[in-house]
Amino acid sequence: MPHLTLHSPLGEITVFEEDGRIVALDFGRGAGVAEATPLLARARRQLDAYFDDPRSAFDLPLAPAGTAFQRKVWDEMLAIPPGRTRRYGEIAAALGSSARAVGGACGANPIPIIIPCHRVVGSGALGGYSGGEGADTKRYLLAHEHADAPLLAAPAH
């Protein structure tokens, strides 16, 4: 599968393409030989632009593998603008589901950052993040976007 690894403030991230659509973004270096297709080069430019200015929009064809419910949750996430957050419960109410199910869909998101699951937070807690360094990565992305989340401070140890 064509993929391209790029450097970011979060370390290396790898973007994967299949049939002319972005299908995954993983933290770390992809295995095998990288292939810089025109779409992957475009994804690199847009990710670089996002890390330079979080108001930059992504305009990439996406094909995340998931259930119909997961895709509905991911569509809700795509509607959250940079610097804004929504609660798991708000998305659940919009979809007639539960906050736990929304959290599961967030954790299953195969294209983090581009499908901004980091913009979904808990009620009274930041919530988890399945990529990179977990909650620290989520905090970084929200702070980078100057998000409206009041929960960005790391917990005291």
Rank of each mutant, 00 (worst) to 15 (best):
residue 3 H to W: 07
residue 3 H to G: 07
residue 6 L to Q: 10
residue 11 G to F: 10
residue 11 G to H: 09
residue 12 E to P: 10
residue 13 I to T: 04
residue 14 T to G: 07
residue 14 T to S: 14
residue 15 V to F: 00
residue 15 V to T: 07
residue 16 F to V: 07
residue 17 E to P: 01
residue 18 E to Q: 15
residue 25 L to C: 08
residue 26 D to V: 12
residue 26 D to H: 14
residue 27 F to P: 03
residue 29 R to A: 13
residue 32 G to W: 10
residue 34 A to M: 11
residue 34 A to G: 09
residue 36 A to W: 00
residue 36 A to Q: 06
residue 36 A to V: 06
residue 40 L to K: 07
residue 41 A to C: 02
residue 42 R to P: 01
residue 44 R to L: 08
residue 44 R to N: 06
residue 45 R to V: 01
residue 45 R to A: 15
residue 45 R to W: 03
residue 46 Q to R: 09
residue 49 A to T: 04
residue 49 A to G: 12
residue 50 Y to D: 03
residue 50 Y to M: 09
residue 52 D to P: 01
residue 53 D to P: 01
residue 54 P to K: 12
residue 55 R to W: 06
residue 56 S to R: 10
residue 58 F to D: 09
residue 58 F to W: 05
residue 59 D to K: 13
residue 59 D to Q: 14
residue 59 D to V: 11
residue 61 P to Q: 02
residue 63 A to T: 00
residue 64 P to Y: 04
residue 65 A to F: 03
residue 65 A to L: 08
residue 66 G to Y: 10
residue 69 F to I: 12
residue 77 M to Y: 12
residue 79 A to W: 10
residue 82 P to G: 14
residue 85 T to S: 10
residue 86 R to S: 12
residue 88 Y to N: 14
residue 88 Y to T: 14
residue 89 G to P: 05
residue 89 G to Y: 05
residue 91 I to R: 13
residue 93 A to Q: 12
residue 95 L to H: 05
residue 95 L to C: 11
residue 98 S to V: 02
residue 99 A to M: 00
residue 102 V to N: 05
residue 102 V to K: 06
residue 103 G to I: 04
residue 105 A to D: 04
residue 105 A to I: 07
residue 106 C to I: 05
residue 107 G to W: 01
residue 108 A to I: 02
residue 108 A to N: 12
residue 111 I to R: 13
residue 111 I to H: 08
residue 111 I to D: 02
residue 111 I to A: 04
residue 114 I to S: 08
residue 115 I to W: 09
residue 115 I to P: 07
residue 117 C to Q: 15
residue 117 C to T: 13
residue 118 H to R: 07
residue 119 R to N: 07
residue 119 R to C: 06
residue 123 S to T: 15
residue 126 L to G: 00
residue 126 L to N: 04
residue 130 S to C: 02
residue 131 G to D: 10
residue 132 G to C: 10
residue 134 G to C: 08
residue 134 G to L: 02
residue 136 D to W: 00
residue 137 T to S: 08
residue 140 Y to E: 00
residue 141 L to G: 09
residue 143 A to F: 03
residue 143 A to I: 02
residue 143 A to D: 14
residue 145 E to R: 13
residue 147 A to V: 12
residue 148 D to G: 06
residue 152 L to T: 10
residue 154 A to L: 04
residue 155 P to M: 02
residue 156 A to F: 09
residue 156 A to V: 14
residue 157 H to D: 12
